[in-house]
Each structure stands twice: as C-alpha cells, then as structure tokens.
C-alpha cells in the first residue's frame, strides 16, 4: 500500500477540522454563487455604484478575492487551536 512521502503523526483533530472546512467552504460557495446568479439573472446590477464611485462588479469581485484570503487566515487560526487542544500527548 501507499503511504505519505513524509512520516506523519496521527491527527486526532482531522474530523473536526474537516467539518470546519466544509462549513467555511459552503459559506464561500454561497457567496460565489451569488455573484454567478447576479450575472445570470440581473447582470445590469453589476453596473450600480455600491461603494463610493465603485460599481458592484468591482466591489463583489475584489470582495471574493479578499474574503478567500481572510477566511484562509481564520481557518488556519481555528485549525491550529483545535490541533493544540486535541493532539496533546
């Protein structure tokens, strides 16, 4: 059978981290789908100014990129705390 390239310790936090990942994934998916749905059903909305002189397309597009970065950092912080708690020897 196969095994990892580097030897790994058993991870008791795997299940909890996986559930957290799934929740965050679905939150992002929902927001990403919102962008696609506007594109499909009301693309004119993208031209509306929503933040100062910036239109919705710019704000939503930049927002999706920045949100991914922020959620990544939050996920890492939460995973690290779960690992410290559950992988204590």
């Amino acid at each position: 059978m196969h095994g990892p390239a580097a030897k790994l310790d058993e991870d008791f936090a795997a299940k909890k981290k996986s559930n957290l990942g799934l929740i965050l994934f679905f939150i992002y998916l929902l927001i990403y789908s919102g962008f696609v749905f506007i594109g499909l059903y009301n693309p004119e909305l993208f031209g509306e100014h929503v933040l100062g002189k910036q239109n919705l397309a710019i704000v939503y597009g930049f927002g999706l990129i920045i949100l991914a970065i922020v959620m990544g950092f939050v996920y890492n912080l939460m995973c690290t705390s779960i690992e410290i708690k559950m992988n204590k020897k």
Partner: peptide, 9 residues
C-alpha cells in the same frame, strides 16, 4: 482564486 478555497477547506 476561488478554486483555492476548495483546495484549502
């Protein structure tokens, strides 16, 4: 970039 969310989570 959104694709990386799937990769990470």
């Amino acid at each position: 970039l959104a694709g990386w969310v799937v990769a990470l989570f």
